[in-house]
């Protein structure tokens, strides 16, 4: 564990601890890719096995999923702006854009919860068939990730307010930005391979 701190370059990369944490998190995201791939594969295998429950084409609607996609994609963009502000050294700008990001994320979650309740009313629940089990677990795992990300980011904002921009806090913010963009990528796959295909098949 080196105590030497670089004097130039992005704040989060200046210590060896920072570099190692970021690399470790990239590897963790690799494991997350495998986790979601397994869920996607399960969904693909169980596609169409709806038993007595409604088929997805009857329930999936373009409107709400497009709004959710728009919210999450925009939040990824604002998250990028937050990191841009952090690199520019603006604590205020960073916190502002982070809060906007979380707001968009909460909006996404609200629509997702509404959507799940709506499907349950229409007779498609976790228990109704293997297809719906796979759907709820795949989309739900993504939703749980978003929820955890929001809670985690709130903790980081408190730390930013208390401590300002240091190699440690900026590393933490950088790591959660990686996480947030990753969830966005996963959502793009859910949107295309679950919702778009589900609507037309």
């Amino acid at each position: 564990m080196s105590t030497h701190e670089l004097k130039t370059g992005p704040l989060e990369y200046r210590t060896q601890e920072g570099q190692m944490s970021i690399l470790g998190f990239w590897i963790f995201l690799g494991a997350e890719v495998v986790l979601f791939s397994t869920l996607f594969a399960t969904y693909a295998v169980l596609f169409g096995r709806t038993a007595d429950a409604p088929v997805p084409a009857d329930l999936f609607e373009p409107g709400i999923t497009l709004v959710m996609t728009f919210l999450l994609l925009t939040s990824s963009f604002t998250c990028g702006l937050a990191i841009h502000q952090m690199r520019a050294g603006s604590l205020k700008g960073l916190i502002t854009w982070l809060v906007i990001t979380l707001g968009l994320g909460l909006g996404f979650l609200g629509f997702e919860i509404y959507e799940f309740i709506h499907y349950a009313h229409e007779g498609a629940t976790l228990q109704s068939s293997s297809f719906w089990s796979a759907f709820f677990v795949l989309a739900g795992t993504h939703g749980v990730h978003v929820t955890l990300g929001i809670g985690w980011a709130v903790l980081l904002i408190i730390q930013l307010v208390k401590r300002g921009l240091t190699p440690v806090t900026s590393r933490k913010v950088f790591v959660i930005s990686l996480y947030w963009h990753f969830l966005d990528v996963i959502w793009i796959f859910i949107f295309t391979s679950v919702y778009l295909i589900g609507m037309v098949v």
Partner: peptide
């Protein structure tokens, strides 16, 4: 676990599980 505790149908013989 979800199958056993929360009644989903991934690996069951009912609900077109596999």
């Amino acid at each position: 676990t979800i199958d056993r505790i929360f009644g989903s149908q991934f690996f069951t013989l009912t609900g077109e599980g596999m």
